[in-house]
């Protein structure tokens, strides 16, 4: 049985809590889509992740977390024409302000079947991978599993 560590992608670009929004965006400007970005501390302990959703939240007015639990609240659509953004945000906003503290990470010795199940259940295409010491070791995505299957059959 294959494990996550046999399939996962290891050369992942990571950021720190103090990385600024400008640094973050310029790092990923050349990618076609925004990936999940792991946030690590100096000893490579995974402390958070940043996804496209966290960037989108910057475009919405700040609201308390507790409002998310209210039923029948109208979702406020983002109005691109009236978004309040100032150039100072580039260096004033740091990763620590926008990252997701609560995230789901999987262990590198988990089977890929279980990893795939968790990704489907949590509706995620990629998840960060950690080892037993909670240190960040890579990212596994549905794409990694699929290419692994193709290469295993000699297709590429």
């Amino acid at each position: 049985m294959k494990h996550v560590k046999d399939v996962m992608f290891r050369q992942v670009i990571t950021v720190h809590r103090h990385t600024t929004l400008r640094q973050l965006l310029s790092k990923f400007a050349e990618f076609h889509t925004f990936p999940i970005v792991p946030v690590v501390e100096r000893d490579n302990i995974l402390v958070g992740i940043i996804t496209l959703k966290n960037l989108l939240d910057l475009l919405k007015p700040a609201e308390p977390e507790i409002l998310k639990t209210i039923p029948f609240l109208d979702e406020k659509p983002i109005e691109i024409s009236s978004v309040e953004l100032s150039p100072e945000m580039g260096h004033l906003v740091v990763v620590d302000d926008i990252m997701e503290n609560k995230f789901f990470a999987i262990q590198e010795d988990m089977s890929i079947e279980e990893a795939l199940r968790l990704m489907r259940l949590h509706n995620k295409e990629q998840l960060p991978v950690i080892n037993k010491d909670k240190k960040f070791t890579g990212v596994i995505g549905i794409f990694d599993i699929v290419t692994h299957l193709f290469s295993g059959k000699g297709i590429f």
Partner: peptide, 28 residues
């Protein structure tokens, strides 16, 4: 009705300690 309160705070772009406390109270 949290929906009505939130709608007004959004419309008038209310911000500050009063607004945060109000939203917290209507949520709970």
């Amino acid at each position: 009705a949290p929906a009505a309160v939130v709608m007004v705070t959004r419309e008038y772009r209310a911000r500050g300690r009063f607004t945060d406390t109000l939203l917290g109270v209507v949520a709970i």
